[in-house]
């Protein structure tokens, strides 16, 4: 990407389509998360049996929604809004974590959001992606220390945090960037900055 296009007008002035796209992405991810929740437990439990913090290898997909949300909308709050909606939807359909999923969604979204806020919502490349991804994973890990992994020692806790942070920062970002690019290339993001970047490059 040669130049970054940010959202139009004051960044905090969300258009209707920004709000709805965040909300619909949240719902779509929520449905996908619900399905992922049904299949991920078995492999996750299997690797955790050998070394519990390895569960992180299967937990990073939960954060993709927020990253995609902020990559597309590029306005403050997009990561939190999308991630929270995805959490609400998967909770309402019925995931194993029930309404406590909301807390996960909130802290995950906040972590990602902070990464982009640190770059003043002006950069949408690897800097904020790595930082935001890591923070999102780290926040989630801390919440899980408290709620699920109360019996772990510090070495496990820290390993889990680093592993989850790294997985989200790298794998989560790669998937989110790939999804965003794919959507932009088929013209689904025309009203948003990533769609405009693609079109500007193509324009003759």
């Amino acid at each position: 990407m040669s130049s970054t296009i940010t959202a139009s007008g004051p960044l905090t002035r969300w258009r209707t389509i920004d709000l709805l796209t965040c909300a619909f992405l949240g719902v779509a991810f929520g449905v996908a998360y619900w399905a992922w929740g049904l299949v991920y437990a078995a492999p996750s439990n299997a690797v955790s049996a050998a070394f519990p913090p390895l569960g992180a290898l299967f937990n990073w997909p939960w954060l993709v929604a927020g990253i995609v949300g902020i990559l597309i909308i590029r306005r403050p709050g997009a990561a939190v809004f999308t991630e929270l909606l995805a959490a609400i939807v998967s909770a309402l359909i019925g995931t194993q974590w029930g309404v406590t999923t909301l807390v996960s969604g909130l802290v995950q979204g906040l972590g990602v959001e902070l990464g982009f806020a640190a770059f003043a919502y002006a950069v949408y490349h690897w800097g904020p992606l790595l930082l935001g991804g890591f923070l999102g994973g780290a926040f989630e890990a801390v919440y899980e220390w408290y709620s699920y992994w109360t019996d772990w020692g510090w070495s496990y806790k820290i390993t889990y945090l680093l592993l989850l942070g790294a997985c989200v920062a790298v794998l989560g970002s790669v998937v989110a960037v790939a999804l965003t690019k794919g959507l932009a290339l088929v013209g689904a993001l025309n009203p948003f900055p990533p769609g405009q970047e693609v079109r500007e490059r193509r324009a003759v």
Partner: peptide, 9 residues
């Protein structure tokens, strides 16, 4: 996601 974006628009 493509379906979601179309509906949102």
């Amino acid at each position: 996601l493509i379906g979601a974006l179309g509906q949102a628009a």
